[in-house]
Design a protein around this nucleic acid. Structure first.
Lengths: 144, 144
DNA sequence: AAAATAAAAGACAAAATAGTCTTAATATTA
DNA sequence: TAATATTAAGACTATTTTGTCTTTTATTTT
């Protein structure tokens, strides 16, 4: 569904959101451990997201990644579209570049609905809404 | 969403279904042209599907690929699961291998619903249901 | 100002996916 | 039975994605 890049990214962003609640920063090692991802890989992904302004960071001792109030309200769909593009939201299920209402592939209408539901779901999902359940150990960002 | 392999496969199978209506066979070149895909690539994909019994074929002059009545009722979900596996139907949106009801990722419930809708949509979609609209040029399997 | 710490950047490597080409096997037709 | 047409199979190449390693830059603390 999503690329590995995107899966790690969402997990990392939710993790950073959790840690940013009390406006503290979190280092890349802790993030990598916290979401069980390759350290250098997630580092590069966060660089990309930082470049696009989705996450903030600070170098040097006591530095790290963080999210201010505004960025805590970032939606998952934003992360997906920045990293994977919006093919998943608007692309044809059968890979036709010209697929559209007026030139539909055979599953255009059915697929359109599923796509839209996915988009709306990710649109509604904001980074800061996951913190509480994580703290209560009702949801998880890494394997047991 | 789906792999290129799977996109081509679904288009090819729908194409073969259309041609199989009057129980005639269709060669790989015609299929490749009809769905606008690399010839040798779709050939290998159809080999895989043939090996799994999803499509039938015959060698030699006037040979080609075809679908008998039974196989014309094959669902798109079957094709997807044979080629891409069922990660898309059952896998975690954030890539957690152990994600489940009792150990859910933060978006488990929302994602589960979208996944299920997708699966049901593909389950219901049978190869033979697309033929008519294709013939009427109301839907398409290749770019203009 | 120096040392230490942390992210940024870029080069590299490995694996998976996508795509191509050649040869072999098999069935049909003449 | 020989020629031909067609899929099957396998080796190969290219591209993209995933992942690693090293060096640089920036910031903080001492």
């Amino acid at each position: 569904m999503f690329s590995k890049t995107c899966e790690y990214a969402i997990r990392a962003m939710i993790f950073i959101a959790q840690k940013s609640k009390d406006s503290s920063k979190v280092g890349i090692k802790e993030i990598a451990k916290g979401i069980d991802s390759p350290e250098h890989f997630i580092a590069k992904i966060l660089q990309r997201l930082g470049g696009k302004g989705l996450v903030q960071s600070q170098k040097g001792p006591n530095g790290g990644f963080y999210l201010d109030k505004k960025h805590l309200a970032c939606s998952l769909s934003r992360i997906v579209s920045v990293l994977d593009g919006d093919k998943i939201f608007t692309g044809c299920g059968l890979g036709l570049t010209e697929c559209s209402e007026s030139y539909p592939c055979p599953i255009h209408n059915q697929f359109k609905k599923v796509r839209k539901d996915m988009q709306q779901m990710l649109e509604k999902a904001k980074l800061n809404e996951f913190t509480e359940k994580l703290e209560q150990n009702l949801t998880f960002l890494k394997r047991k």
